[in-house]
Write a protein that binds this DNA or RNA. Structure first.
Length: 576
RNA sequence: CGAGGUGUAGCGCAGUUUGGUAGCGCGUUUGGUUCGGGACCAAAAGGUCGCAGGUUCAAAUCCUGUCACCUCGACCA
């Protein structure tokens, strides 16, 4: 590709709306153009990167016996009504009507389509197991797109669906897929991507993992044990606590006028935050009932755990009028029966809690759960914290970090095959429901994540495996006859040798050419200049600055070929 | 959905307080001089100031509405 012929434009100034590195560079470097909220057109440079990522994904999916298919982007709503998700999913599912007035949806994921495709096709146990996948456009009407390609509404996704006759077979295949994902991320130049135990969310199913690139700009909070290999998304990280023993005190009512927040009460009574019992109020979406969650004062409620326990969407309760609870002084003792009350596990860790007295201006001290409340069910509903106890190894080794979710895998079980009536005939001639797994990777998000992981102040540093081109050939002074002739010949020879070359043949100054090359992020750069040719050399440099050499011009071609080959091999040298 | 912010040339911005008919830098085009880290000189093109309505002799500027985009939040009773 010659630069002079390419549809591209770069910007010196950081666009006003960009906050994170990948977004800044991908706008400044002319990688993409915003079309609407969370919707982008991709320029050739980005299409080349995503095509390479897609090929790596395709190779790895095929390695685990995946069969590539293509589902439709637009589906009849009736298909989604079969699984129940037409009504279960909120407004992120874009619904519309066709000219006949039929309900239609834009595909945001394709479990329904996968079951639809397979259910009349895989009739016999002999056809199992199998996996089908596609690489295709998804649309999710996200409440808030952000960060360039990190969170968009329309995006390309690889989504795979496996079908099995036994749980053991699903579990085994799930692990194969886990390994394939590790290979994909390693080959794309981000071997640091980790898998964490995750909540299955709207997908349903029990076991799920997310693949996360750890970075401060990540949208998810991750819980990582620094002592063992326990890793989980904050959303469903298990909690474990030390138990503090103490002499049991009397239950006493104390005046705490105007003390409504945990901090105020703790300070006023001279107690630690963890001696308080905090009440957090929620409203269930299913029946609008108010739920009060009691949790230790130093902890926070994990709403995902709460949602899963209640099997209902929950919202912070803003209005406690007409509930008979005394805002600011809510306590478990003598609380109104109009609300549902839940107790977090953390309340088992100590005695003598301070809690609201359900009376304006008063709290109770010395609350002993067993003595004062009887046998109450303690549920794990809290968020874990930095330095907490690891639920696996038991050490105080929990650390919190943030991550971008670049992929996920789920064991779905029979959620879709069951609801959509998929059956096969087993060895005994009996009708059975197969079980499923599903496996996704966001292609554009992965590209942006690689940029997040590999960039410097001047632009992205693409790994050789997914770089838009392998070599950037810069002709400094393309108007110089000798330079032009040498660069033209080098371009020709490299192309003939199968090397992907972007040839900057513009008559621009060195500064412009180098800045643009930095933004392009091609891993190997060859600079042909009058000065160099006078000394009989061309310059060969790596984008990551780990190499810069002057090579005899007669040997330059061979040197570049060898270097590209070595850098490619380095990307493929993974031990998974 | 809640709060805050911003909409003026392809990009970055000034101008809005105090109404007077739009400007700067980058980029683009043309000509010339330069040439190894975003060169210089000269000339030129490019904007119904997000949109709609209102006030006024006069609106980018004031008022009302609306749309779009950005950031934070969606939890401590």
């Amino acid at each position: 590709m010659k630069f002079t012929q390419m549809l591209t434009k770069r910007f010196k100034d950081t666009p006003a709306d960009c906050q994170i590195a990948s977004h800044i560079f991908m706008i400044r470097g002319g990688y993409m153009k915003n079309v609407g909220n969370g919707i982008y057109s991709l320029f050739p440079i980005t299409k080349r990167i995503t095509a390479k990522i897609e090929n790596i994904i395709r190779e790895e999916m095929n390695r685990i016996d995946g069969q590539e298919v293509l589902f439709p982007v637009v589906m009849p709503g009736s298909l989604w009504k079969e699984s129940g998700r037409y009504d279960a999913i909120g407004s992120e599912l874009l619904r519309f009507r066709d000219r006949s007035g039929n309900d239609m949806v834009l595909g945001m994921t394709h479990e329904e389509a996968a079951v639809h495709l397979a259910r009349e096709t895989a009739e016999s146990y002999q056809q199992y197991p199998f996996m089908i996948y596609q690489i295709q456009t998804k649309f999710r009407d996200e409440p808030r797109a952000r960060g360039g390609l990190i969170r968009v509404r329309e995006f390309t996704m690889k989504d795979a669906y496996s079908f099995h006759t036994t749980k053991e077979d699903l579990e085994e295949y799930y692990m194969r897929c886990h390994k394939a994902y590790e290979r994909i991320f390693a080959r794309c130049g981000v071997p640091e991507v980790i898998s964490v135990k995750s909540d299955s969310g709207m997908m349903g199913g029990k076991v799920a993992h997310e693949f996360m690139l750890c970075t401060p700009i990540g949208e998810d909070s991750l819980v990582v044990c620094s002592n063992c290999d326990y890793r989980a998304n904050m959303e469903n990280a298990d909690c474990k606590y030390d138990v503090l023993s103490a002499d049991i005190e009397e239950l006493t009512k104390v005046a705490t006028p105007e003390m409504k927040t945990i901090e105020e009460v703790a300070t006023f009574l001279g107690k630690d935050m963890n001696a308080l019992m905090k009440a957090v109020a929620y409203q269930k979406e299913t029946d609008d009932k108010i739920v009060i969650v009691f949790v230790r004062g130093d902890l926070e409620v994990n709403e995902v755990k709460l949602r899963n326990y209640l099997k209902s969407e929950v919202h912070p309760a803003l209005d406690l009028e007409n509930t008979d609870v005394c805002a600011g002084f809510i306590g478990p003792k003598g609380i109104t029966e109009k609300v549902q009350v839940l107790f977090d596990m953390s309340l088992a860790t100590r005695e003598n809690f301070v809690c609201g007295a359900n009376e304006e201006g008063f709290h109770l001290t010395g609350l002993n759960i067993k003595r004062d409340l009887g046998d109450v069910e303690l549920i794990d509903l809290a968020k874990t914290t930095e330095g907490a106890i690891c639920p696996v190894c038991g050490q105080h080794a929990i650390t919190l970090t943030r991550g971008i979710e670049v992929g996920n895998i789920f064991q779905l079980g029979d959620k879709y095959t069951g609801s959509m009536g998929m059956k096969y005939i087993d060895q005994n001639g009996q009708m059975q429901t197969p079980i499923m797994g599903c496996y996704g990777i966001g292609v554009g998000r992965l590209a942006a994540s690689v940029c997040e992981a590999h960039h410097d102040n001047y632009g992205p540093i693409w790994p050789m495996s997914i770089a838009p081109w392998q070599v950037q050939l810069c002709a400094l002074r393309a108007d110089d006859a000798e330079v032009r002739a040498f660069a033209d010949e080098m371009y020709e020879k490299l192309q003939n040798a199968g090397v992907e070359v972007i040839f900057d043949d513009r008559p621009v100054s060195a500064g412009v050419m180098f800045s643009d090359a930095d933004l392009t992020g091609v891993p190997l750069r060859v600079v042909v200049s009058p000065k160099g040719l006078k000394n009989g050399t061309v310059e060969v440099a790596k984008r990551d600055k780990s190499m810069m050499e002057k090579i005899e011009k007669d040997q330059a071609f061979d040197f570049v070929i060898e270097t590209v080959k070595a850098m490619k091999a380095e990307c493929e040298n993974i031990n998974i």
